[in-house]
Design a protein around this nucleic acid. Structure first.
Lengths: 238, 238
DNA sequence: TCCCTAGGTGTACGGCGTACACCTGACAGG
DNA sequence: CCTGTCAGGTGTACGCCGTACACCTAGGGA
């Protein structure tokens, strides 16, 4: 109770302060406790005040996701692609362990936030720099799914977004906006290649079924190999 | 408008009718339109009537998941493990394409529903019958994640449930209840093996980090092999 | 006949997101 | 110094949500 008279000016709200408080609240009390009202109370402010800094709760969630994804460190330079990807994914996982609500939040949204695009772009860049073709990079990104973000989930699964607003969702498959394509060149490259004939944006122009089977067979082949080579568990500390 | 006078007795409600109507509503209008009120209206009944058949909305969701998972066909008998798993997963995926809301619903819940356990048990049984050790089966199930249910997600990820109710969640790691163990012997076997020293139930007694890295390395090794062998895209129709 | 019970009803409560009108204090231009 | 503007915090209110609780009602066994 070091708080002095209520006349002293509280640090003024800002989008950043709102987002950080929201992340903290979700971390501590669980995502289901994150209501505009609770968040406002934490900030010592009336609920409607938040709407001067975020458009609505969905945008708040997007902002929170960006805060979290922004915590994932940059890739260590000068290492081979495999080590780079591995290290980055494990670091992403570490971040998400601090924000257990984040995976579900990420999955339940469109996930085209700037921070996520930047992260994916850098991941794609790592594969490309390792000599992967655009096609193989594309499939491999699908195969890793959200594991690339430290958990597991199909990225860009058209079905998922359909699940949120009925099967209709006749939103036109708008092409990647130019300013996005400019900022995330590797994402753009893959989006281009995937839309080779008619379709466009990620998740629309690429063959979901193909991607799924590609990942599935990659896993099954790996599993078969382990099996045939007589895989045995490493000694666990005991 | 073939409906006759409002005196004629509507088909009486039943848990099954409620669940099926809920699935239909979620399929058609999206999961976010599934409210007890909307569902009741669809059934020509007052909202509170539903509570005579489901305890609450969470239980309703669990029931819906079971309906969906129950739609996944049985494995075709007499084929090798790889073909069996592959076929079953693709059939699961097909089912989930009809219920796009289901993956998120499954992930957001505890997913210990009977139908899911039965499905997993049968999958585990397929691996075991193919000669996989208990350990390898365990890791491989983790590696496939929810892809085994036709989409992607870590099964039994302790972090995920923690995300729902704060980090506390001091729910005791209750051992697999005997009646469950009896009904799902393969699940029980893996749970047993995973709790070799002290911990118990799935997701508690197994080393999350180990499982994650196992899956990650399985993927990376597979990817590396594709890369080294000069993978090229199959000819696409067009 | 009477009562029990399964199952549908009606009302009400507290919480949610947020539209909209309002206030207020800092600051720029005259 | 006055005054208009406007960013940003406030208060009220609306329509949703899940669901507790008391109630009614029809059918069926004792």
């Amino acid at each position: 109770m070091v708080e002095q008279a209520d006349t002293l000016p509280r640090t003024p709200l800002s989008r950043d302060r709102v987002l950080r408080a929201a992340v903290a609240l979700a971390d501590e009390a669980g995502i289901e406790s994150l209501s505009m009202r609770n968040l406002a109370q934490d900030l010592g402010v009336v609920p409607m005040a938040l709407y001067k800094h975020v458009a609505n709760k969905d945008e708040l969630l997007d902002g929170m996701i960006d805060v979290v994804v922004g915590e994932i460190g940059a890739p260590e330079p000068g290492v081979d692609w495999k080590r780079a990807i591995r290290g980055r994914v494990l670091s992403a996982r570490e971040v998400l362990r601090r924000h257990p609500w984040a995976p579900l939040a990420i999955e339940s949204r469109n996930m085209a936030t700037p921070a996520i695009l930047a992260y994916l772009d850098s991941m794609i860049g790592t594969f490309r720099a390792g000599g992967f073709s655009v096609d193989l990079t594309h499939h491999v990104m699908h195969a890793m799914g959200s594991r690339i973000l430290g958990f597991s989930q199909e990225l860009f699964d058209a079905d998922r977004s359909a699940g949120r607003s009925g099967r209709a969702d006749p939103a036109p498959p708008t092409a990647l906006p130019p300013e996005i394509a400019a900022r995330f060149p590797h994402v753009a490259e893959i989006a281009m290649a995937a839309s080779h004939d008619d379709e466009s944006v990620l998740g629309q122009g690429c063959d979901d079924q193909f991607e799924f089977e590609f990942a599935l067979d990659l896993l099954l082949d790996g599993i078969e190999r382990l099996h045939r080579h007589g895989w045995a568990p490493p000694r666990r500390p005991g």
